[in-house]
Amino acid sequence: MSTLKTTVISSSFYFYYSLLAIVRQAQYGIQILVMPLLALSVFMAVYAATRMMGGNVKDLFYPFLVYNLINFPLGAVTQISFGTFTNTSYSSVLLATPTSINTLLGRFLGDSWTSLIGNLFGILVAAIIVKPTFHGPTGVAGIFLLLLLIVPSIQLGMAIGMKFIFAHQLSQFILLGFFVILVLPTNVPWLWIALPFTASLHLFANASLSLAPFLYGFIGVILWWIVAKAILLRAYNHYRSGKGVDRR
């Protein structure tokens, strides 16, 4: 069986069973609503500050969407990866499988989708509050780029979690990435390549579909797929040499 097939199948099982577990836990009441509160509380703080300063609250929505689709897989996976790799018995049982590191990738992908489902509530609440403007073709192109960035985000998060002993603290810092996204320029071509979500933000802000930001962003996505995979493999080689987060 190919690695990709195994990863996709196992990840689908992981996502489906995790979702069933969440639904089952929802029987215990409104605790299920707590899931998106972490991200939503960051959004609400910025929303309140923007209103107080007389700013345009509509401008907050798409950075928040980016934050959920990119930064959250990166930050949450960094944390989960760190927890997994510091627990050597748990990481060993997952790595000692035919697809090895991809088993974990599938697992974290499942975790990310599960957390994104939870965050969907937060995104909906944010959309209801600020009523953002959505431009059809550009909006779809922007979301397409963001979805493609999920896998490299997870790979980066995995690499950080297995390599750096301060990964836990770093993941908390990443969770504050919303503020960084808000201040980044969205009309710089080289930044569309370096950080493709800035291309998405540019697309979201424009009604007419311009090919340049999409193409630059797409090139950036492809580069991130290559770079993140290379970083992950390097981090795993370090881990196998005994230079990971589990070192004594």
Binding site: I9, S10, S89, Y90, V93, T97
Partner: peptide
């Protein structure tokens, strides 16, 4: 490999765990 600590997902049923691990083991 069976490690010294329980490694199955505690939020899932045993059947769900079994199905997942068989897919991972190919």
């Amino acid at each position: 490999f069976v490690p010294e600590l329980p490694f199955l997902n505690s939020n899932w049923t045993l059947w769900q765990n079994a199905r997942y691990w068989f897919s991972v083991w190919e």
